[in-house]
Design a protein around this nucleic acid. Sequence first.
DNA 1: AACTTAGGCAACCGCTTTAAA
DNA 2: CTTTAAAGCGGTTGCCTAAGT
Length: 295
Amino acid sequence: MARRKPRAARDGVRSAEDQTVAPLKRGPWTAEEDEVLARFVEREGEGRWRTLPRRAGLLRCGKSCRLRWMNYLRPDIKRGPIADDEEDLILRLHRVLGNRWSLIAGRLPGRTDNEIKNYWNSHLSKKLVAQGLDPRTHMPLAAAAASGKTMAPAGRSNATASVPAAAADKTVAAVELARPPAPPAVQVQPTSSAAAAGCDVSRDSPADGGDEDFAFATSSMNLDTHGFEGLGDQFIADYGAASRGGGFHDVMGCPMVDDDTFTSFLDSLVSESQFADYLGAGDAAGHKNDQGGAS
DNA sequence: AACTTAGGCAACCGCTTTAAA
DNA sequence: CTTTAAAGCGGTTGCCTAAGT
């Protein structure tokens, strides 16, 4: 449901994308528009969003069309309330990934990043607070307050605010993992270490299918005295060794893992049994089950 | 019944990265 | 190498509605 009054109508400002001949429509999508868009995309396929409105005969910007399709019209969208197992998975993934909504959504078939983000903001974050946990760090609120170190907002905004774009990377976290912070629990921030190591810690690229690498994600973990999920940092090292068959790579002076490794790691979160397998046998060869990239 | 408040969520904004020209 | 278009992401906004007073 759309209820937002078009911003242009509120402040008279039009974006560059709106500087077109016909005034673009904003706000709620009508059933007719939905039908036009859905039919067009089904016929022509996704992509070329910028020109799609004109080709489809819609008075919307391409961005709006893409968003509408991705978050609402796509045939594989799952409707209905978030199930308990989905909620549990979101919690676990968020603990690892932070506010990487698209990546989290990529592990919940049929769910969109927007949906998960909204669900988090309106339900889960409050749930954690009610349990005495910091929704950003998943640490006990008292501990977080005492340490004065809380997880910076995950995702690009944080990264961009503190790290030059060119400094983004897949590698930093592994460096941190090799030297986990001393207690009390501290949320590792990619920023300083990235800068120090000259590594790149920002978002993943669309080209890699949307999967963040293991390194960045783990940089968002709570590397407290118990390690990830209380399993201990050794798990991380073991996991990397098992899934790569040779331990973490070392590239440009920064140990790192590839997308497959990280994907397997995420899959292990999706499946408790797989997770247990990793802990037990360390045989990750049969567990690679990439479900695709982000939404 | 009328009014106020808070929650939920779709849509939009600003920004970055990547690829193509 | 530079510029531009396209795609994608996370944060924010603000309308609608249910609950509370």
